[in-house]
Structure formats: structure tokens, C-alpha cells
Design a protein around this nucleic acid. Structure first.
Length: 734
DNA sequence: TCAATCCGTATC
DNA sequence: ATACGGATTGAC
């Protein structure tokens, strides 16, 4: 397999194995070969005595390593993923197999494959104690009086007993069978332990397991639960933030069979666990499960392919599984794991809606100043009994436009009238269109922020040129035109004087907070877990922002994010309450109030089926310049019944700005007016991009992917089509 | 008639 | 992508 991204070269090539490489060049190992005159990387997929190729075979140039990093199962999976997503095997393998780290490879001559791991979970054989765990205590879990040393594998069903099918599923796993389930998780902190219980049952049957979660904090939580249920020696955490050496070491431990359980973020779905018995995908609707690199596979869908290929069990779940997950139930391919109503009542908090206040939704100032009175009251009551309050607010990134603090006119770029935004560096704004930096007055972005984790560094506006000044009223201070987390933190702090305010969001995510009175302001997805049973109250203040997004999945996503926050509240019986600032008449809000995500999703799925949207159909998005899109469409022999939508102009907010941070020297701006001939920026001549959507009945998904892949191959290397992006099941459909 | 250039094709 | 071969074009 030649590591080459070109679609029309997405096939295998035969090489001669020189005698001196005969031992090293094993299937799955990395090699270097000459290809089209150049030295390139590749994997050996197979050794054979003959070749179909009727030209001369070139010899392998050299073996990189004899380590068979690419297992046959993963090679097969990667091929299936490439086919499913109209991508190339090389692209998928780049996601599936981490880069080699030579020193780690030779150093990690770890003990020969541990026999019978499940039986005797060695208490972390004096190896490096996982630093992530040492640093991030998880009080919510530690609350369970777990013995310090690793106990025998858990056999009790625990929370699974609340589910009608729970115990039988565990029994099937322990028996080495392969149940497949869509899991509506119970509100509360039980889910990591439940996953660990299912994994422990699998390990007991002699099989391995893979657990995929959205982010690092979830990795920590599941890892801690697994350490308790399975034993630390058998478990390994795979995560992108490990660094090359640690990442490769963890990967090798899995590949060599030393670790039987892998838990990690989306790439972990490719972890080469041998003798796989179970794949778990937690919170499968989280957009972090969607890989941003070509061919953009989704961890949930890879897991489905893998479970099917390897005959493994599958648990896909979350507080609010998506319509995609729910579609696995159709035809009985998977079974539902649903909490009966009485159990819901026992675990869920009490949820109330404040109703729709139109002014509240329209006027940012009103939003900041007038918290719904029900929310304030609920928060006060929680604080009074000593429990923390979680406040979910919109992420700043949602509508990060800045406005003059005095007259509220939007802050615009002097050169091109593009919107200005804060993109990281303090004291400087950046135009989102042309990328020019604009320094700001020292205190332009509001007063001291509460509980800034980093602390205010010494930074005045760098003396380059004029600071931003409102062209209308000459003011130099700005405010976020949508109230983001920081701002809300201040406002809330004022409403509750003397109560500590902590924030968790983009710049500083907290994993946990102690069980004491505090306001915890968080953006969706960054909510810390509260120790000792959870929050006394959860306020969901971002309903308008979440529901207002122009996306097919907006309502589903909103409910999922609300549920994730609300699940951190104590049960109603222990005073746990949730207030949501949205209209109680909306189906998503109703679903939260009744804690009935399954009914919501069923309805959602039915509606989408009626409209011909996924998952009832399979969609492909083709993004690129108008010419490129047209060429691809022209070359594609689409399956019968394919429905071509568009093309429409593609709003290009995503890729342009962040990549090209201005050079550190800040060159462009001081050079004064640029030459008139020059376009706004080197990459500023970005041609308008278009998006074409192609829709086929679900059964034709494979044919659609094949057609697009083939069309891409036909276009080959034409320059006009270089920027094309083909995406199946695009995560966002406008 | 030769060379520079274009286009299409294969890349083990 | 990139290298190569054959066809094509243009100048001498």
C-alpha cells in the first residue's frame, strides 16, 4: 500500500522482497519503496509467491521496521471506511496508524503478552502511574468508596440492573456473544462505571474492547472506571494530546496484545485490539466524533462497520442518542437499552422552562441583565443548601462579533469592512475577512474578568499604529454583541455577591468542581462534574443560541447539549433542578422536561425520513469552486435515483481565518496602505466556493460513494479540481 | 527535419 | 503528483 493520496492510485502494488529483507518485511510492517521514480512510504499488506503484474517488479528499497503495526483487521476496516466515505485507503490509514516513534519502539520491549489478564489484574505493575489520573482527581467517582487497590473484576450489574435488557446484555458479553445496542444512558454520573462494567464482562469472556469518547476528560473518567473494573494493567488510553512517543507506546501496547482495552478519542475506534469483543461509542452525537481530516469518517459509523466486520458487540449511546444511532434499531440490527419511566423519575432532575421571552431573545443587554427570575430563584435555593450551580451559556465562538461598547455598532475592519474578532492573541483583534490585525486600547474589551485562570498578563496594546476606535462615536472599548461565558460570569457574579464564580470553557476547561456553593459558568461540552452527587441546580441559558443555528440537526444537538448538562444535576428527589430559558412548547424542550429523549428522536427520525434527509437517505456534499464542482458532477456516473441539490454558495467562515495567523512581526499592517493592485491578501482571491448535495436512498450509499470516488479518479490530477472536498454524511447540513 | 511543446497515461 | 512517450506544432 503506497502512501499516496491520489484517488486513482488507491490500489495495491507488488514489489520484490530482496532476500535480506525477507524477515523484516512482514505483513503490516512499514517499508520504503521506489514509486514513479520517488522514494515513498508504504505498508506491506500481504506476501505472495506470484504477481499479477506483467511488468518488471521493483524491489523494496528498505524496511522501516519489522513491527507489524497494521493488523489485518484494521487494514480491512480501513478499506471499508475508505469505500464508505469515498476516500482512499492511504488517507484512512493515516488516521488509523499513528506515526512511528523509533526510540519508543525499540525501548518498549515490554513483558511478553500478559497471560490471562482478566483473571489477575495486576495492580499497575510499578510502571509509570498514568499522569492524567494523578493530576485530575475525579471526586464524583472517588465518592464511590472504592478500595485503593484494584479489586477483582466486577460481576454485579450495578446500574445496568435498572434496564430491562441490562443483565442479559452483560451475560451475553461475558459469554463471548455479540449483542448490539443503542443505549439511552441514565441521567447522573453512572455512565463511566456502566461502560466499565460492560467492558469487564467482555474481558472476562477473553475478548478485548474499545471505548470511544468525545474528549479527554471523558477519557479520564472512563479510564478511572476501567481501572476499577478491569484493572489498570490491561487498559490503555489513546489520545491525541499524548505526544508522539506516548501515543505510539500506547498504540504498541494494544497492537502487541499487552493491553486488552483501549479507551480514547475518535481515532481510538481504530485501535488494533486483538480478538475484539466490544466497541463502545459514548455520546455518539458529539461533533468531536466527526474526524475533520479526509475522508471525514465518523467514529460511530466506523464502530458500526468494525463491530460488523469483527463480529464484536456494540454499544452506541449517550443521554440522547441521535437519529443516526436510532436507525441501527431498524430491522432489529441493534436493540434499544431504554430506561423505564419509574427509573427515569428516580434519577432525573426536575426540569422547568421559563417560557419564551421574545425580548430576552432579541436584546443582548436584556439577556445579560435580566436573568429569568425563575433561574435566579432556583440558583439561590441551590446555593442555600450548599450545592453548586451550573450555568450553561453560549460559546463565544457562536457569534463572536464585537461591537462598540457605547453605540453598539458592529466593529469592522477599516480596510475591507470585514467583521473583527478576537482570535486568541490578547490586545489584538483580527479581521475575519482579510486577516489584518487591529490593536485595541488597553482596556478595550471590558473590565477585569472574574476568575481568569491564566491571570492577566502584562500586555498593553502593542504600539503599532492606531488602536481600534469606533468610527461613529470614537469610543475605544468594545463588547461582545452576544453575551458569552466571561460576560455572563460577571453579570451572575453581581447577581449573587459573595458567591465564587468559576468558568469552564475554551480557555480553561475544568473536569470537576467541589460540592460547595459556587456558580459554575460553562459553555456546552465543557461542563465540569460536581462532586458528591451533582449540582443542586443547572441553568440552561443558551436555548436561543443553540436552537437558532441553521442546521438540520439543531434541535437534536440542542437537546443533546442540554441533557448533558442537566444530567449533572442531582436527582429531583435530592433537590436537583434544571431551568431552561426556552419555550416549553418546543419539542426539544418538552423532551428535556419529561426526560424522554427516545420519543423525541423517534419523531425527529420520522420527520427527516419524510423530508428525505439522513439517516433515511445518504447524502454527499461536494465542496469546491464552481468549475470543480461542475466537473466532478459531470464525470460522476451517479446511481439511479440520485437527487442532486444545488449547488449553492458555501459560506466560508470555517477555513479562512484561523490558519494564517499574521506573522509575529505583524508585518502587514504597519506597512501602511498596501499597493492598490494587490488583492486584499495573498489568499484573498479565494474564489467563491459552492456546495453540491447529492442524495440517494440509504441502500445506495455504497454506490454513491463508489461513484464519487471513481469520478474523482477520472478527474485525476487536473489542476482545476485540486481543492475539491467530497464528504459523505456531512455533519452539518444547512 | 528537428526541436519545443502539449497531452495522455502509467506509476509495481 | 510527476515522469515519460507519442503526437503535434512551428521554425528553419
Amino acid at each position: 500500500m503506497i502512501d499516496n493520496p491520489l484517488t486513482h492510485l488507491d490500489r495495491l502494488f507488488d514489489y520484490l522482497v530482496p532476500a535480506d529483507l525477507a524477515d523484516a518485511a512482514v505483513p503490516g510492517s512499514r517499508v520504503r519503496v521506489r514509486f514513479a521514480g520517488r522514494l515513498v512510504d508504504g505498508f506491506i499488506l500481504e506476501r505472495a509467491a506470484t504477481s499479477d503484474h506483467d511488468g518488471r517488479l521493483a524491489p523494496l528499497e528498505r524496511s522501516v521496521s519489522a513491527e507489524p503495526v497494521l493488523s489485518p483487521a484494521i487494514a480491512r476496516l480501513a478499506r471499508a471506511v475508505a469505500d464508505r466515505y469515498a476516500g482512499t485507503l492511504a488517507d484512512v490509514l493515516r488516521l488509523a496508524v499513528p506515526p512511528r516513534h523509533a526510540r519508543t519502539e525499540s525501548a518498549a520491549v515490554a513483558p511478553a503478552p500478559t497471560p490471562a489478564l482478566a483473571e489477575t489484574p495486576t495492580p499497575a505493575l510499578a510502571e509509570t502511574p498514568t499522569p492524567a489520573l494523578a493530576e485530575t482527581p475525579t471526586p464524583a467517582l472517588a465518592e464511590t468508596p472504592a478500595p485503593a487497590e484494584t479489586p477483582a473484576p466486577e460481576r454485579k450489574p450495578g446500574e445496568w440492573a435498572r434496564y430491562p435488557a441490562g443483565e442479559s446484555m452483560l451475560a451475553a458479553l461475558a459469554d463471548g456473544r455479540s449483542p448490539r445496542a443503542v443505549w439511552w444512558a441514565p441521567p447522573g454520573p453512572a455512565w463511566p462505571a456502566m461502560i466499565a462494567t460492560a467492558v469487564a464482562a467482555t474481558v472476562r469472556s477473553g475478548h478485548g474492547a474499545v471505548v470511544v469518547v468525545p474528549d479527554h476528560r471523558d477519557v479520564d473518567r472512563v479510564e478511572a472506571a476501567l481501572a476499577r473494573a478491569v484493572g489498570r494493567a490491561a487498559t490503555v488510553a489513546l489520545r491525541a494530546d499524548l505526544g508522539p512517543a506516548a501515543r505510539y507506546r500506547a498504540f504498541l501496547a494494544v497492537r502487541r496484545g499487552q493491553a486488552r482495552v483501549a479507551v480514547g478519542t475518535r481515532a481510538a475506534v481504530f485501535a488494533p485490539v486483538t480478538d475484539l469483543g466490544l466497541v463502545v461509542v459514548w455520546d455518539e452525537g458529539d461533533d468531536l466524533h466527526a474526524e475533520p481530516l479526509a475522508p471525514y469518517p465518523h467514529a460511530r459509523d466506523v464502530a458500526v462497520l468494525r463491530a460488523a466486520q469483527e463480529g464484536a458487540a456494540l454499544i452506541v449511546g449517550g443521554f440522547c442518542p441521535t437519529a443516526e444511532a436510532e436507525s441501527l434499531l431498524r430491522g432489529g440490527w441493534a436493540h434499544p437499552l431504554l430506561l423505564p419511566r419509574p427509573e427515569v423519575r428516580a434519577l432525573a432532575p426536575r426540569v422547568e422552562a421559563t417560557g419564551s421571552d421574545h425580548e430576552y431573545a432579541r436584546d443582548p443587554a436584556a439577556r445579560a441583565a435580566r436573568l429569568p427570575s425563575l433561574a435566579v430563584r432556583t440558583a439561590r435555593e441551590s446555593l442555600a443548601v450548599g450545592a453548586p450551580v451550573l450555568v450553561q451559556v453560549p460559546r463565544r465562538g457562536y457569534q463572536p462579533s464585537l461591537a462598540c461598547a457605547d453605540c453598539r455598532r458592529p466593529a469592522r475592519c477599516r480596510h475591507c469592512q470585514g467583521p473583527l474578532a478576537r482570535l486568541g492573541r490578547p490586545g489584538v483583534l483580527t479581521c475575519r475577512w482579510c486577516g489584518r490585525p487591529v490593536p485595541t486600547a488597553p482596556d478595550a474589551l471590558g473590565g477585569p474578568t472574574t476568575a481568569s485562570p491564566a491571570g492577566p498578563g502584562p500586555r498593553a496594546a502593542r504600539g503599532t499604529g492606531a488602536v481600534w476606535r469606533c468610527p461613529a462615536c470614537a469610543a475605544t472599548s468594545l463588547r461582545a454583541s452576544v453575551t458569552g461565558d466571561r460576560r455572563t460570569a460577571e453579570e451572575l457574579g453581581r447577581a449573587f455577591p459573595g458567591v465564587p464564580v468559576r468558568t469552564s470553557g475554551r480557555d480553561g476547561v475544568l473536569a470537576t468542581v467541589p460540592a460547595e456553593p459556587a456558580l459554575v459558568i460553562s459553555t456546552p461540552g465543557a461542563e465540569p462534574v460536581a462532586a458528591d452527587g451533582g449540582y443542586g441546580a443547572v441553568l440552561l441559558l443558551d436555548g436561543w443560541a443553540l436552537l437558532g443555528r441553521p442546521d438540520l440537526r439543531a434541535a437534536e444537538t440542542a437537546l443533546r447539549r442540554w441533557a448533558a448538562a442537566a444530567a449533572l444535576a442531582r436527582p429531583a428527589s435530592q433537590g436537583g433542578r434544571v431551568v431552561i430559558a426556552a419555550d416549553a412548547g418546543l419539542p426539544a424542550v418538552q423532551a428535556l422536561i419529561r426526560w424522554d429523549p427516545a420519543t423525541f428522536t423517534a419523531r425527529e427520525a420520522a420527520e427527516r425520513a419524510e423530508l428525505g434527509f439522513p439517516p433515511a437517505t445518504r447524502m454527499a456534499a461536494v465542496d469546491g469552486t464552481p468549475a470543480a464542482v461542475a466537473e466532478l458532477l459531470d464525470a460522476a456516473r451517479l446511481p439511479d435515483g440520485a437527487d442532486v441539490l444545488g449547488p449553492v454558495p458555501l459560506p466560508a467562515p470555517t477555513r479562512a481565518a484561523p490558519t494564517r495567523a499574521a506573522s509575529p512581526s505583524g508585518a502587514p499592517s504597519p506597512s501602511g496602505g498596501r499597493s492598490p493592485s494587490g488583492a486584499a491578501s495573498p489568499s484573498g482571491r479565494e474564489e467563491e466556493l459552492e456546495r453540491l448535495l447529492i442524495r440517494v436512498p440509504r441502500e445506495q450509499g455504497g454506490a454513491l460513494a463508489a461513484a464519487l470516488h471513481a469520478a474523482r479518479g477520472v478527474l485525476g490530477t487536473r489542476h482545476t479540481t485540486s481543492g475539491l472536498r467530497v464528504q459523505l454524511d456531512p455533519p452539518v447540513i444547512g
